[in-house]
């Protein structure tokens, strides 16, 4: 028993420490949200923004529009997308037993990108809700990719290996189709496609934020009863089955939730990379692998990265907003490096 050189803290103390870290992360997110609302190309003063937030009716119309109709939807969208990608990434890494997995591992984002590209290329538009055409095409892309991976995996019993292989194949297929769409597009159309693929919050509005919120809320509520079972998957399939879990059925459910969350995240803002990979790792290093705490922590970490990236995207070039997908990695990588270098323990062997 040479490893027991010092007594570890008691279980209850560890649980308290984890909840404290979760609360601190919540405070950090709240601060980031306020800073995000204060920054923007309109160079509003801090008191003006705060006054407009608290008393919108008393504020001048121009301020009200900028704060309530331009900035708030963007901030909400950043939070929702961060939550969706953080949780989807955690579920994906746990479900596939693979630290490199992200919401995009199984080809969902490539398929969403192809759906969007095809819509931009053909110029089709829905009769009643033209603004929903590209989002719906992106969601349809996700659904088709999910159906393909599910169809192949179902035959061989939903193991992690089969899902990863089917997912990688799907990823390459849709990447090729996406490239093909770009190749045949005219320069102007190509530019629109590339801009969509960068990922941008600028399309957020009070029309689409509630849709994303609804999808994310439904997925999270459906996940809560199974958090212990998801935790058990970290013991490996054989041990999870031995403690009474129907592993294949649980994977199917998680797979469905990841599809919903990913579709919600990419539909209106495009493919935003890295958040779904980094947020779960940061969360795991901070609070361990009890998914009752890990999932909310990954959600908050995802939101922090997204909101911070949103702030940075407004600061990079004053007066303009750089597409957020370009800066998420710039914000996320230092987080991950810092935690890796701080000597936190290895979780994956």
């Amino acid at each position: 028993m040479t490893i027991a050189e010092r007594a570890a803290p008691h279980h209850a103390a560890l649980s308290r420490a984890r909840l404290t870290r979760l609360s601190v992360a919540g405070v950090v997110l709240a601060v980031a949200v306020v800073v995000d609302l204060l920054t923007g190309p309109a160079f509003l003063s801090v008191p003006d923004v705060l006054r407009t937030l608290v008393l919108p009716d008393a504020a001048p119309a121009r301020l009200r529009v900028i704060v309530w109709d331009l900035r708030l939807p963007l901030t909400f969208m950043a939070i929702m997308v961060g939550v969706a990608l953080g949780v989807a990434g955690t579920l994906m890494q746990t479900m596939l037993g693979n630290p490199l997995a992200s919401p995009y591992t199984l080809g969902f984002s490539a398929a969403a990108g192809f759906g969007a590209s095809l819509t931009i290329l053909t110029g089709v538009s829905l009769p009643l809700f033209p603004s929903l055409t590209i989002p719906l095409a992106a969601i349809a892309g996700c659904a088709i990719a999910a159906a393909m991976v599910y169809g192949v995996s179902r035959v061989r019993g939903m193991t992690a290996e089969v899902m990863v292989l089917a997912g990688i194949a799907t990823l390459f297929l849709f990447q090729s189709l996406q490239s093909l769409a770009q190749y045949v597009a005219s320069p102007e159309v190509l530019q629109a496609m590339v801009f969509w693929l960068f990922g941008s919050l600028l399309k957020a509005s009070w029309q689409n934020v509630p849709i994303v919120f609804g999808l994310v809320a439904v997925s999270l509520l459906a996940l809560i009863p199974d958090l212990w079972k998801v935790t058990a998957l970290r013991l490996g399939d054989a041990r999870a089955a031995a403690v009474g879990i129907n592993v294949a059925r649980l994977r199917i459910k998680l797979f469905t939730l990841v599809t919903l969350l990913t579709a919600a995240a990419v539909a209106f803002v495009g493919t935003i990379g890295f958040v779904g990979l980094v947020a779960p790792h940061v969360a795991r290093m901070l609070v361990g692998e009890d998914h009752r705490v890990l999932v909310p922590m990954a959600a908050i970490c995802g939101a922090i990265v997204m909101v911070s990236a949103s702030i940075l995207s407004k600061l990079v070039s004053p007066g303009a907003v750089v597409p957020i997908g370009i800066v998420t990695a710039v914000v996320g990588v230092p987080f991950l490096f810092a935690l890796t270098l701080s000597g936190r323990r290895n979780h994956w062997g």
Binding site: H11, W228, G244, R292, H347
Partner: peptide
């Protein structure tokens, strides 16, 4: 056992179907 689940959590998971939140 390449997981950072604690030993306590590992034991608790024996009753995973009855734990409750």
């Amino acid at each position: 056992g390449f997981s950072s689940l604690t030993l306590m959590e590992v034991v608790l998971l024996g009753r995973v179907t009855r734990l409750g939140f």
